[in-house]
Design a protein around this nucleic acid. Sequence first.
DNA 1: GCTGCCGGGAT
DNA 2: ATCCCGGCAGC
Length: 355
Amino acid sequence: MEAERPSAPGPGCGRPPLRAAGRDPAAAPVSVPAPPQGPAVEFALPQEPEPRAADLGAPGAGAAGPPTPSAHIPVPGHRAPPGKARLDEVMAAAALTSLSTSPLLLGAPAVAFSTEPSLEPWREAPVRPPGSGGSSGDGGWGPTSDQSSPSTPSPPLPPEAAHFLFGEPALRKRKSSLQGLFQCLWKRCGKVLSSASGMQRHIRLVHLGRQAEPEQSDGEEDFYYTELDVGVDSLTDGLSGLTPGSPTASVPPAFPRLEPLEPPALPSLLRPPALPPPPVLSSLPAPQGCLAPVHPEPQPIPVRACAPALPAKPGANPRKPRGDAKKCRKVYGMDHRDLWCTACRWKKACQRFLD
DNA sequence: GCTGCCGGGAT
DNA sequence: ATCCCGGCAGC
């Protein structure tokens, strides 16, 4: 008895596959409208290639072409020939420059998710490439470090690598030993001094509001100034000119997150509480490609405020017009729900009574 | 309000 | 994958 009824509709179904097929097309259009939004955000990610290349170029000079294994930034423990070091400096600076300059790069991470300082943003951020860049990009720090110190006894990780990975802070420090000017990155300060110590003092006193306590300096000041080297000057300068705090800005943010790489080195440096107004950080999202490029101040920074507002779906999924045919529900009624086709039972598009 | 069914959650 | 339901939208 029961078999009869159900059987009728069952086999009589006709062509469920058709239904499905028809549906797919419907779905297609849906995915089409979506792109407008998705791409905007996702496209930013593609940046990886760029940063990666740059990074490779810097740390693994090998990529650059010069078959100089030594140029690999050996940085065993001390320093290489002055000339080489200088070259590296320039290359690094150039790499950083290109990185920080690239609008896509900056925009990408921030646009993706900016509100939350979670790892995500930075993960995707250009910073990651460096790490994975070493390898094929499978997100493996192991490989990279291995290459860096194939036979070096250095346990933690070569300072140079750290510099490149982390970006400015470290790099800057190192550079400072060379020469050049130091420019304060603090919002609308831009003060330029000829000595790092002077700059640090300036930042400590003027911006951090700390009394002179250089001995205790946790290095925080390092984040607030950059060096304008004679050689690299042009590069750095140009960057600072664009955004007083952007050149390095692109990297610093990620810095604090990479604790694993730099444990005892500068723990205090990463200390978040110590940073009242993270100028560097804020400057990063801002310039992203919106309006104000430079505003290293305690600002809420509606990160994607500038982003092409794509909140809801514009006209993404024009619901498929309701079919005229009566469906199981109507035919059998709620009383005989068990007679409905599964689709109807599941509140899906009826498979029995196709339109 | 009824109905069809999309989108998504639960298992 | 299967089952179910919230909720939207056409009627």
